[in-house]
């Protein structure tokens, strides 16, 4: 186990210090370009797919458990689950019937108001294949990419509400920034009275929370209010549920209230998600 090569007394090439300084400079330049320009955007999209095998490998234990679980599920439990699903389907079907008449009524009313008909959004089902390893950043990676028509800025939903927007698109996968990431903010409005607000991600590693910015002390907002996307930023489609107000703190000395909201989407649980194609919006890139 002896060292074969003895460390040369006179080093060839630049010294360790010089090399380190050069590499530190290179790293800082790369970080600067990444953060403050979009020169890397096409490179970022190309390298998104590189992460797929790593996420796939990380998901193996979970998948194995799932397979064992389905294989060993008892007949009784299956029947029970089947019945529960049937009941749920029935309930949804009834709601859908209601919706048909409501939609018709809505169209009639809109025609009365001479406004354009709302176009039904086209959606694409996707599956979550990984989450960002750094707990301060809240990004997820999904198994749909440019091959399936995904574009940067596209909205991602789960069964309950808005989850986030696509920021990098690879060929077969894309990265999605969640609405609770601390670098994310989106325009919302209160469903009850239409007051427009901005919901900002907090990026708390332990819980998913949104903070509402610039809510003046006189704003009509209360706990339990539903916030829906207002579509004002031009990024998100209008009218999707975003969050529920959980806490309204009024400070008499301050100009604005501190309002917290909990996202409707199950950001840490949903595995099957929907990508919405916003037909009214011209596609970017």
């Amino acid at each position: 186990m002896g060292e074969k090569s003895i460390k040369p007394i006179f080093n060839k090439g630049p010294s360790l210090g010089a090399r380190t300084a050069l590499l530190i400079l290179a790293a800082l330049i790369i970080a600067g370009i990444y953060l403050y320009t979009d020169w890397f955007s096409s490179l970022k999209n190309k390298t998104t797919d590189l992460a797929i095998p790593f996420h796939w490998a990380a998901d193996l234990p979970d998948r194995a458990i799932e397979i064992v679980d389905t294989k060993t599920m008892s007949r009784g439990r299956l029947e029970q689950e089947n019945e529960a699903l049937r009941t749920e389907l029935l309930l949804h079907k009834r709601k859908l019937q209601e919706m048909v008449s409501l939609a018709a009524e809505n169209v009639r009313l809109r025609q009365l108001l001479n406004s354009r008909e709302t176009i039904e959004d086209r959606v694409l089902v996707a599956e979550l294949i990984g989450i960002s390893p750094d707990i301060t950043t809240q990004k997820v990676i999904i198994n749909r990419g440019s091959k399936h028509g995904v574009y940067v800025g596209q909205a991602l939903l789960d069964a309950n509400g808005l989850m986030g927007q696509v920021v990098e698109v690879g060929e077969r996968s894309s990265r999605v920034l969640l609405i609770t990431d601390s670098t994310h903010a989106l325009p919302v409005q209160i469903d009850r009275n239409g007051v427009r607000l901005v919901a900002e991600g907090v990026g708390n590693p332990n819980e998913f929370r949104l903070s509402l910015r610039y809510v003046s002390n006189t704003t009509d907002i209360q706990e339990g209010d539903l916030l829906v996307s207002s579509g004002l930023g031009g990024r998100f489609p209008e009218g999707y549920p975003v969050a529920v107000v959980t806490e309204v703190e009024q400070h008499s000395g301050r100009e604005f209230m501190q309002v917290w909201a909990r996202p409707m989407a199950e950001l840490d649980r949903s595995r099957h998600v929907l990508l919405v194609f916003d037909e009214s919006q011209p596609e970017e890139e």
Binding site: I29, I30, F40, I141
Partner: peptide
């Protein structure tokens, strides 16, 4: 691979 700010772990 991890989708961090490029250069952060390199540095």
């Amino acid at each position: 691979i991890h989708g961090n700010v490029w250069g952060s772990h390199a540095l």
